[in-house]
Protein backbone atom coordinates (compact mmCIF):
# COMPACT_ATOMS: atom_id res chain seq x y z
CA UNK A 1 0.00 0.00 0.00
CA UNK A 2 1.29 3.36 -1.04
CA UNK A 3 -0.26 6.76 -0.39
CA UNK A 4 1.68 10.00 -0.83
CA UNK A 5 -0.17 13.29 -0.41
CA UNK A 6 1.60 16.35 -1.73
CA UNK A 7 -0.14 19.62 -0.87
CA UNK A 8 1.97 21.61 -3.30
CA UNK A 9 1.07 19.43 -6.27
CA UNK A 10 2.62 21.90 -8.70
CA UNK A 11 6.05 20.65 -7.55
CA UNK A 12 5.39 17.22 -9.06
CA UNK A 13 4.12 18.84 -12.26
CA UNK A 14 7.33 20.89 -12.48
CA UNK A 15 9.51 17.85 -11.76
CA UNK A 16 7.97 15.96 -14.66
CA UNK A 17 8.41 18.90 -17.02
CA UNK A 18 12.05 19.08 -15.92
CA UNK A 19 12.93 15.46 -16.69
CA UNK A 20 10.53 14.07 -19.28
CA UNK A 21 12.50 15.23 -22.31
CA UNK A 22 15.72 13.70 -21.01
CA UNK A 23 14.34 10.36 -19.89
CA UNK A 24 11.56 8.34 -21.52
CA UNK A 25 10.89 5.56 -19.01
CA UNK A 26 12.04 5.36 -15.41
CA UNK A 27 11.54 3.46 -12.18
CA UNK A 28 10.24 5.60 -9.32
CA UNK A 29 11.41 4.15 -6.01
CA UNK A 30 9.38 4.60 -2.88
CA UNK A 31 10.90 3.96 0.54
CA UNK A 32 10.77 5.38 4.07
CA UNK A 33 13.27 8.03 2.90
CA UNK A 34 11.08 9.36 0.14
CA UNK A 35 10.00 9.20 -3.46
CA UNK A 36 13.02 9.02 -5.72
CA UNK A 37 14.20 8.27 -9.20
CA UNK A 38 17.47 7.63 -10.92
CA UNK A 39 17.55 7.33 -14.69
CA UNK A 40 19.85 7.85 -17.64
CA UNK A 41 19.13 9.36 -21.03
CA UNK A 42 19.07 6.98 -24.00
CA UNK A 43 22.76 7.55 -24.81
CA UNK A 44 23.83 7.03 -21.17
CA UNK A 45 25.95 10.20 -21.00
CA UNK A 46 23.50 12.03 -18.71
CA UNK A 47 21.77 10.91 -15.53
CA UNK A 48 18.99 12.45 -13.51
CA UNK A 49 18.55 11.82 -9.78
CA UNK A 50 15.40 13.05 -8.05
CA UNK A 51 14.57 12.97 -4.37
CA UNK A 52 11.34 14.12 -2.75
CA UNK A 53 11.82 13.41 0.96
CA UNK A 54 8.99 11.77 2.87
CA UNK A 55 8.91 14.70 5.37
CA UNK A 56 7.88 17.01 2.52
CA UNK A 57 4.60 15.16 2.02
CA UNK A 58 1.58 15.95 4.18
CA UNK A 59 0.86 12.25 4.37
CA UNK A 60 3.38 9.59 3.45
CA UNK A 61 2.57 5.91 3.66
CA UNK A 62 4.86 3.39 2.02
CA UNK A 63 4.52 -0.04 3.66
CA UNK A 64 7.45 -1.60 1.83
CA UNK A 65 10.13 -0.47 -0.60
CA UNK A 66 8.62 -0.48 -4.05
CA UNK A 67 9.87 0.36 -7.53
CA UNK A 68 7.33 1.46 -10.10
CA UNK A 69 8.15 1.72 -13.80
CA UNK A 70 6.51 4.68 -15.49
CA UNK A 71 6.54 6.24 -18.91
CA UNK A 72 7.33 9.87 -18.11
CA UNK A 73 5.52 11.24 -21.13
CA UNK A 74 2.32 9.45 -20.04
CA UNK A 75 2.84 10.59 -16.44
CA UNK A 76 3.30 14.16 -17.64
CA UNK A 77 0.06 13.94 -19.67
CA UNK A 78 -1.81 12.94 -16.53
CA UNK A 79 -0.18 15.52 -14.26
CA UNK A 80 -0.96 18.27 -16.76
CA UNK A 81 -4.61 17.57 -15.91
CA UNK A 82 -3.98 18.70 -12.32
CA UNK A 83 -4.47 22.37 -11.54
CA UNK A 84 -1.46 24.31 -10.33
CA UNK A 85 -3.06 24.76 -6.89
CA UNK A 86 -4.27 21.16 -6.64
CA UNK A 87 -3.23 18.72 -3.95
CA UNK A 88 -1.86 15.58 -5.62
CA UNK A 89 -2.07 12.16 -3.99
CA UNK A 90 -0.22 9.18 -5.49
CA UNK A 91 -1.88 5.87 -4.61
CA UNK A 92 -0.80 2.34 -5.33
CA UNK A 93 -1.77 -1.14 -4.16
CA UNK A 94 0.63 -4.04 -3.69
CA UNK A 95 0.89 -6.16 -6.79
CA UNK A 96 -1.14 -3.77 -8.91
CA UNK A 97 0.03 -2.91 -12.41
CA UNK A 98 -1.44 0.59 -12.17
CA UNK A 99 -0.95 3.72 -10.08
CA UNK A 100 -3.55 6.38 -9.35
CA UNK A 101 -3.02 10.12 -9.24
CA UNK A 102 -5.74 11.93 -7.33
CA UNK A 103 -6.12 15.69 -7.82
CA UNK A 104 -8.07 17.75 -5.29
CA UNK A 105 -8.84 21.39 -5.87
CA UNK A 106 -7.88 23.65 -2.91
CA UNK A 107 -11.56 24.16 -2.02
CA UNK A 108 -12.25 20.41 -2.30
CA UNK A 109 -15.05 21.03 -4.82
CA UNK A 110 -13.37 19.02 -7.57
CA UNK A 111 -11.76 15.63 -7.12
CA UNK A 112 -10.28 13.69 -10.03
CA UNK A 113 -8.72 10.24 -10.31
CA UNK A 114 -6.32 9.35 -13.09
CA UNK A 115 -5.16 5.75 -13.29
CA UNK A 116 -1.93 5.06 -15.15
CA UNK A 117 -0.54 1.73 -16.29
CA UNK A 118 2.84 0.79 -14.87
CA UNK A 119 5.54 -0.91 -16.90
CA UNK A 120 8.47 -3.24 -16.29
CA UNK A 121 11.73 -1.36 -16.74
CA UNK A 122 15.08 -3.05 -16.49
CA UNK A 123 17.43 -0.30 -15.33
CA UNK A 124 20.82 -0.22 -13.71
CA UNK A 125 21.07 1.72 -10.43
CA UNK A 126 24.41 3.46 -9.92
CA UNK A 127 26.00 4.34 -6.61
CA UNK A 128 26.97 8.02 -6.67
CA UNK A 129 29.44 8.73 -3.87
CA UNK A 130 29.88 12.14 -2.23
CA UNK A 131 32.84 13.78 -3.93
CA UNK A 132 35.17 16.74 -3.57
CA UNK A 133 34.75 19.08 -6.53
CA UNK A 134 37.38 21.40 -7.97
CA UNK A 135 34.83 24.19 -8.15
CA UNK A 136 31.23 24.83 -7.16
CA UNK A 137 29.28 27.68 -8.74
CA UNK A 138 25.99 28.78 -7.25
CA UNK A 139 24.05 31.21 -9.40
CA UNK A 140 20.51 32.32 -10.29
CA UNK A 141 18.87 29.51 -12.27
CA UNK A 142 17.27 31.95 -14.73
CA UNK A 143 20.71 33.39 -15.53
CA UNK A 144 22.15 29.93 -16.17
CA UNK A 145 19.19 29.12 -18.42
CA UNK A 146 19.68 32.36 -20.34
CA UNK A 147 23.38 31.67 -20.84
CA UNK A 148 22.80 28.12 -22.13
CA UNK A 149 20.08 29.33 -24.51
CA UNK A 150 22.18 32.23 -25.80
CA UNK A 151 25.28 30.11 -26.35
CA UNK A 152 23.36 27.36 -28.14
CA UNK A 153 22.48 29.83 -30.90
CA UNK A 154 26.23 30.12 -31.61
CA UNK A 155 27.68 26.65 -30.93
CA UNK A 156 26.95 23.07 -29.89
CA UNK A 157 29.24 22.83 -26.87
CA UNK A 158 30.04 25.01 -23.88
CA UNK A 159 33.37 25.23 -22.14
CA UNK A 160 32.83 26.05 -18.47
CA UNK A 161 36.02 27.38 -16.87
CA UNK A 162 36.41 28.43 -13.26
CA UNK A 163 39.41 30.52 -12.28
CA UNK A 164 39.98 33.06 -9.54
CA UNK A 165 38.59 35.65 -12.00
CA UNK A 166 35.18 33.99 -12.06
CA UNK A 167 33.29 31.48 -14.14
CA UNK A 168 33.47 31.65 -17.93
CA UNK A 169 31.00 30.05 -20.34
CA UNK A 170 32.42 29.87 -23.88
CA UNK A 171 31.28 28.51 -27.19
CA UNK A 172 32.40 28.55 -30.82
CA UNK A 173 30.50 27.82 -34.02
CA UNK A 174 30.34 28.50 -37.75
CA UNK A 175 29.23 32.12 -37.28
CA UNK A 176 31.71 33.05 -34.55
CA UNK A 177 32.40 32.68 -30.85
CA UNK A 178 31.03 33.86 -27.51
CA UNK A 179 32.35 34.22 -23.98
CA UNK A 180 30.27 35.08 -20.94
CA UNK A 181 32.09 35.73 -17.67
CA UNK A 182 30.34 35.91 -14.32
CA UNK A 183 32.19 37.20 -11.29
CA UNK A 184 31.33 36.37 -7.73
CA UNK A 185 28.64 38.78 -6.60
CA UNK A 186 27.26 38.57 -3.10
CA UNK A 187 26.37 42.26 -2.72
CA UNK A 188 22.82 41.85 -3.98
CA UNK A 189 19.51 42.72 -2.36
CA UNK A 190 18.19 39.17 -2.44
CA UNK A 191 20.20 35.99 -1.76
CA UNK A 192 18.67 34.36 -4.85
CA UNK A 193 20.39 36.95 -7.06
CA UNK A 194 23.87 36.13 -5.81
CA UNK A 195 26.62 34.35 -7.70
CA UNK A 196 28.92 32.43 -5.39
CA UNK A 197 32.06 30.73 -6.67
CA UNK A 198 33.94 28.26 -4.50
CA UNK A 199 37.17 27.20 -6.14
CA UNK A 200 39.59 24.62 -4.77
CA UNK A 201 41.53 24.57 -8.03
CA UNK A 202 40.95 25.94 -11.53
CA UNK A 203 38.92 23.67 -13.79
CA UNK A 204 37.83 23.80 -17.42
CA UNK A 205 35.43 21.28 -18.97
CA UNK A 206 33.47 20.96 -22.21
CA UNK A 207 29.82 19.88 -22.34
CA UNK A 208 27.12 19.39 -24.97
CA UNK A 209 24.77 22.40 -24.85
CA UNK A 210 21.85 20.22 -25.94
CA UNK A 211 21.96 18.51 -22.54
CA UNK A 212 22.58 21.70 -20.56
CA UNK A 213 19.51 23.24 -22.21
CA UNK A 214 17.50 20.18 -21.30
CA UNK A 215 18.58 20.50 -17.64
CA UNK A 216 17.40 24.11 -17.54
CA UNK A 217 13.81 22.87 -17.91
CA UNK A 218 14.10 22.47 -14.11
CA UNK A 219 14.46 26.26 -13.69
CA UNK A 220 10.86 26.72 -12.37
CA UNK A 221 11.74 24.42 -9.44
CA UNK A 222 14.37 26.68 -7.91
CA UNK A 223 15.62 30.25 -8.09
CA UNK A 224 19.21 29.00 -7.72
CA UNK A 225 21.25 26.35 -9.47
CA UNK A 226 24.47 24.76 -8.24
CA UNK A 227 27.05 23.58 -10.78
CA UNK A 228 29.75 21.29 -9.36
CA UNK A 229 32.80 20.70 -11.54
CA UNK A 230 35.69 18.28 -11.29
CA UNK A 231 38.04 17.14 -14.05
CA UNK A 232 37.55 13.49 -13.04
CA UNK A 233 33.76 13.46 -12.72
CA UNK A 234 30.55 14.28 -14.56
CA UNK A 235 29.32 17.82 -13.86
CA UNK A 236 26.42 18.02 -11.40
CA UNK A 237 23.73 20.60 -12.11
CA UNK A 238 21.51 20.71 -9.04
CA UNK A 239 18.13 22.37 -8.52
CA UNK A 240 17.01 22.21 -4.90
CA UNK A 241 13.31 21.68 -4.33
CA UNK A 242 12.36 23.78 -1.32
CA UNK A 243 12.12 21.71 1.88
CA UNK A 244 11.69 18.52 -0.13
CA UNK A 245 14.84 17.47 -1.91
CA UNK A 246 16.42 18.01 -5.28
CA UNK A 247 16.73 17.26 -8.95
CA UNK A 248 20.36 16.60 -9.90
CA UNK A 249 21.55 16.21 -13.44
CA UNK A 250 24.90 14.56 -14.15
CA UNK A 251 26.60 14.97 -17.52
CA UNK A 252 29.83 13.39 -18.72
CA UNK A 253 32.25 15.97 -20.15
CA UNK A 254 33.52 15.84 -23.71
CA UNK A 255 37.17 14.83 -23.69
CA UNK A 256 39.68 15.74 -26.41
CA UNK A 257 41.09 12.55 -27.86
Amino acid sequence: MLELRLVQGSLLKKVLEAIKDLVTDANFDCSATGFSLQAMDSSHVALVALLLRSEGFEHYRCDRNISMGMNLNNMSKMLKCAGNDDIITIKGDDGSDTITFMFESPTQDKIADFEMKLMDIDSEHLGIPEAEYHAIVRMPSAEFSRICKDLSSIGDTVVISVTKEGVKFSTRGDIGAANIVLRQNTTVDKPEEATIIEMNEPVSLTFALRYMNSFTKATPLSSMVTISLSSELPVVVEYKIAEMGYVRFYLAPKIEE
Partner: peptide, 14 residues
Protein backbone atom coordinates in the same frame (compact mmCIF):
# COMPACT_ATOMS: atom_id res chain seq x y z
CA UNK B 1 37.33 14.82 -32.24
CA UNK B 2 35.78 14.56 -28.82
CA UNK B 3 35.21 11.47 -26.76
CA UNK B 4 32.29 11.31 -24.40
CA UNK B 5 32.35 8.58 -21.79
CA UNK B 6 29.21 7.06 -20.36
CA UNK B 7 27.98 7.84 -16.86
CA UNK B 8 28.55 4.19 -15.89
CA UNK B 9 32.27 4.69 -16.63
CA UNK B 10 32.35 7.10 -13.66
CA UNK B 11 29.96 5.47 -11.20
CA UNK B 12 29.59 1.80 -10.27
CA UNK B 13 26.38 -0.17 -10.09
CA UNK B 14 24.86 -0.62 -6.62
Amino acid sequence: PCLQRKISDYFEGD
